[in-house]
Design a protein around this nucleic acid. Sequence first.
RNA 1: GCCCGGGUGGUGGAAUGGCAGACACGAGGGUCUUAGAAGCCCUUGCCGUAAGGUGUGCAGGUUCGAGUCCUGUCCCGGGCACCA
Length: 874
Amino acid sequence: MATTCTDYDFLQIEPHWQKFWSDTATFRTPAIDPSKPKYYVLDMFPYPSGAGLHLGHCENYAITDILARYQRAQGKNVLYPIGWDAFGLPTENYAVKTGRHPREVTIENVATFRRQLKAIGVSYDFEREVDTTDPRYFRWTQWIWLQLFKKGLAYVEEKPVWWCPALGTVLANEEVIDGVSEVGKHPVERRPLRQWVLRITAYAERLLQDLKLVDWPDSTKRMQEAWIGRSEGAEILFALENSALGDLKVFTTRPDTLFGATFMVIAPEHPLADALTTPAQREAVAAYRKLAAAKSDLERTDLAKGEKTGVWSGSFAINPVNGQKIPVWIADYVIMGYGTGAIMAVPAHDERDYAFAQKFNIPVVQVIEPDHAEGRNGNSTTKLPYTGDGVLVHSDGYSGLRWEEAKKKITADLAARGRGQATVNYKLRDWLFSRQRYWGEPFPLVWVNADDYAAATAHAKAAGIALPLPAEPVTCVIDGQTRYALPVPEASLPLTLPEVRSYQPTGTGESPLAAITDWVDIWFDAATGHAVPASDARPAAHYVLARRETNTMPQWAGSCWYYLRYLDPKNDAAIAAPAALDYWKGPDIYVGGAEHAVLHLLYARFWHKVLFDLGVVPTPEPFTKLFHQGIILGEDGEKMSKSRGNVANPDDIIRSHGTDTLRLYLMFLGPLEAMKPWNPSGIEGVHRFLQKVWRECIERDTGAAHPKLSDDASATPADLAKLLHETIKKVGEDIAGLRFNTAISAMMIFVNAWQKAERIARRDALAFLQLLAPFAPHLAEELWARVGGTALAASVGQAPWPAFDPAKLIASELKVVVQINGKKRAELLLPVGATQDQAVAAVQAHPDAQPHLAGKELKRIVYVPGKILNIVIT
RNA sequence: GCCCGGGUGGUGGAAUGGCAGACACGAGGGUCUUAGAAGCCCUUGCCGUAAGGUGUGCAGGUUCGAGUCCUGUCCCGGGCACCA
């Protein structure tokens, strides 16, 4: 039932239809039906911040909503869900500031988001909402973590984190601005803390290779490739002059330049740095290492632009190919985290090594000569450093070889002597997976001593409980004692967050959870997961004294698998039922910002592959097709931000022009993937368009259907009918190809023509409303009902998408542009199928063309029927 | 420095190697109106009264024909970076 307004009163129409959709559950996901094709549209789910929806969200969700509505009209079973990525720092910080519980804040923010999403008219199935902070959801986040733990993909390590002594807390990278804390501008330092780390590097090769399986923007694929950073090379052992110290292992991608190695460099943190330092150098090395340690990574990289620094250790290494004695230096341009933390330096063929050698007067030996370079054998004119390809020189036994061959041969020869081997290195680091925060998923495990670990696991086994234990126990040292990580039984999940009185940091760097003694120190039953405070009497002999893990998981955890939970969000027995996983598989399209091109997408792929290996999911990749919408900038062309004062608020636009106008305008602004400045003056254009559609459908004074609508199916003039079918074709193709701006332009062209026609068949008007419906669903519903569409379907979206009639697209005559020597001189209307000779004859008779052709020889004729006739003359 | 994008009217943008500027915004003129708003009609890349010329950052090239392909170059935006 439509409204009765006579004008396009969007303030009345839009809420009316939102209520209709909600009351009739129009967008409830259909049941699994293997006989029907499925289409799963996924948005990157939002973090429900206190600020509410911004235009970027609106753009993102308008895109997916249009796709969802279009695919429904195509007869697909559409899954179009939404949820909340609600754990995380801003909420926790807000809770610290206000003393409110983060859950309370989250519930409030989610309510705001849900209300705003409904106000922009997106057709989500709100019955499938997921919330990462809901224990029924994070139960499965914890379950997946246990599978990773069991597979040996989780381990514990001391890792440096940002520590702010003044705030007494650990800070995230983004909370440290220019070397001071974002809050309060206090100094910060690096401090090692016990952390959980996930072994994503074990999947590096597959994460790289399987990029071939997905339809993603090339730039995103390349960013992932670069992040994984595969490089082939060799590990080479250099004997140390002091043979008691053993060998120094380096990684190089250029084993072909081994004869040019004139020094070695190790990172200041290298484990051999101490041992290699001779007494004479001790003081200098100590000073240098202290200097390097004080530098943040940022400062170290900043110095890349400046001078190289370093200090000689006093020791020498032996080049394995020529026995030459070369000095070992310590310099911070070599970092411990990559390769082996040590390099062989070849100044002639590496810019960094060259700069270092220049500064410290180290010899430079050229061993590669570019092809066709003059004066091989000693009198080279090649400018050094030379990093390109070529032929080896000054390399006994290898001189004259091309570099590719030399790489292989030198590596093989070293391998034969046990002094090296070909290896592959990745830049990808393991994933630091713990946070010293309250508002995150607790790790489902406790720490116990060795004896209790043995007793507890034996007890669980005897009780018939298969704990998710790794092959090798994970241990760490707490207060000087070795502790074993004992997982809670899967059946006891979720492990929920205890209530705390304060979210203030503990001051020790630990999570606020560590202060809740009753929760942390417990008697623990490994078979049931049951626990009582350690201050209580031991309930039974099989209870062991345990300390809970007080770190929590990072925000990434919940967002790594949420797309699977939508398939079956209320399932208490599994992530999702196998039938649901089988039918829906994964998203057919995933839409979200390019800022997640690396981390989120890489982490989610990693978890998905682990689940694939476990047989939980049927596909090796989670997101087969990915699309990044461009950022909406402020009017000034800068990023929208409060401080710049250039933020456009969607609520204001909904009030002034309606959400259909807002959505349509966001889609009309330009290509979806482009970064676009917001230009509020242009919004009038699309608003006028919608009003024009209204005026063509509704009689102004009575509010009845417009009198020019006719029940005679042939009432539409032939030109307009042809245009309608062209529009149906174009809009369908453009939606499928994500070119919404040109789809809208095609609809505008049609309506301009419709306005000039005296009559139009009612069914043609309805077909047009169907095209408009994905973009401006409220107006389309209203007009659909009032023009008579409800006889076909209660909701415009439920009517099958109009088909275009190819026969209607064919014209009897085609326009051909006539060019003479490449310049347009005339236009011809030729019957379909006209031959080149007929075309040329027509041109020669054409008054515009004749003067140009008179007395000229036709040297060449290019004829493309229906397009162009180009005549080349002398 | 490296890797990606991208440079088209006053503005947002359109154009399977085939009429550059679709569709809009803005601007100018007209119509309607007591007046205005809204609507409707016309004009609108630049130079030129016009015929015509010219035009997609710049310089070349390929082609009957280039915004589109190739080479070089400049500028803007994004990402990465002492990664051996």
